[in-house]
Amino acid sequence: MEPVIPDEKAIKPPHKIWILELWDMCKMAVIAIAIMLLLNIFVFNLSLVKGQSMEPTLENSERLFVDKLVYHFASPKSGDVVVLKDPSTGPDRKTFLVKRVIAKPGDTVEVREHELFVNGQPKSEPYTDVIIEDSDFKPLTLGKDEYFVMGDNRHAGRSKDSRYFGSVKKSQIVGRAEFVFWPISKIRSL
């Protein structure tokens, strides 16, 4: 006959069992929160669209899934929708913008007669149907790790972008917006 080994929980008073289970749940919650925070810092971010600067592509109050790893392995491409640190605010402020990459390092950008040109050629922009209402600007050639970003809404004064603060460094780009996940009725990839 084998000896009977009593269950640990059976020999502990009921109030201690409850405390042990609560302690286990608290440890699991702390671990889950720590993992989510690490993923949010290094892998992805969930961002809220504020304002009208990316209309018609993105609307106010839509929520985005942002891939923060992609640009550690590749460079932003023309047409990518990116989240970047607002260069017009001080380094202490954590303000972010959602913009589209229009030109990459080595490209020359200009606006002539309300039309966008990249490397001397009119830029095909199927994501917007609005002409650039702001005044023209002379050709600007981007340096190493510099990107020219614009909002899709080209109405005068609607988008704080590279026309306002100049080119942005790759280090200022937080990640690429991959898809809209909220509201559910508007889920779509970008």
Rank of each mutant, 00 (worst) to 15 (best):
I41P: 00
F42W: 13
F42T: 14
F42L: 13
F42K: 08
V43N: 01
V43K: 00
V43P: 09
F44Q: 07
F44S: 11
F44P: 11
L46C: 03
L46H: 00
S47W: 03
L48F: 14
L48Y: 13
K50P: 14
K50F: 10
G51K: 08
M54R: 01
M54Y: 02
E55Q: 13
P56Q: 04
T57D: 08
L58W: 04
E59T: 00
E59H: 12
E59C: 05
N60I: 05
S61M: 08
S61D: 14
S61T: 04
R63W: 14
R63M: 06
F65V: 15
F65P: 10
F65I: 13
V66E: 07
V66Q: 08
D67W: 06
D67C: 02
D67R: 01
D67L: 00
L69P: 00
Y71Q: 07
Y71H: 13
H72F: 15
F73H: 10
F73T: 11
A74H: 15
A74N: 15
S75W: 01
S75V: 03
P76T: 02
K77H: 13
K77P: 00
S78P: 06
S78V: 09
G79Y: 15
G79P: 10
G79W: 14
G79L: 12
D80V: 04
V83D: 01
V83Y: 04
K85C: 06
K85L: 13
K85P: 05
D86E: 13
D86P: 12
D86N: 15
P87Y: 07
P87G: 11
S88E: 09
S88V: 05
S88R: 09
G90L: 08
G90W: 09
R93P: 00
R93F: 12
R93I: 15
K94S: 12
T95H: 11
F96A: 11
L97C: 09
V98H: 01
V98M: 01
K99Q: 10
R100T: 07
V101P: 06
I102C: 09
A103M: 06
K104R: 10
P105L: 02
P105G: 00
G106R: 05
D107E: 02
V109A: 09
V109Q: 08
E110D: 06
R112F: 09
R112D: 10
H114G: 10
H114Q: 14
L116A: 10
L116Y: 07
F117I: 12
F117S: 08
V118R: 03
G120R: 07
P122N: 04
K123D: 10
E125L: 06
Y127Q: 11
T128N: 02
T128H: 02
D129Y: 02
V130Y: 05
V130E: 06
V130N: 03
V130M: 14
I131M: 12
I132W: 13
I132D: 08
E133L: 13
E133I: 13
D134T: 11
D134H: 04
D134F: 04
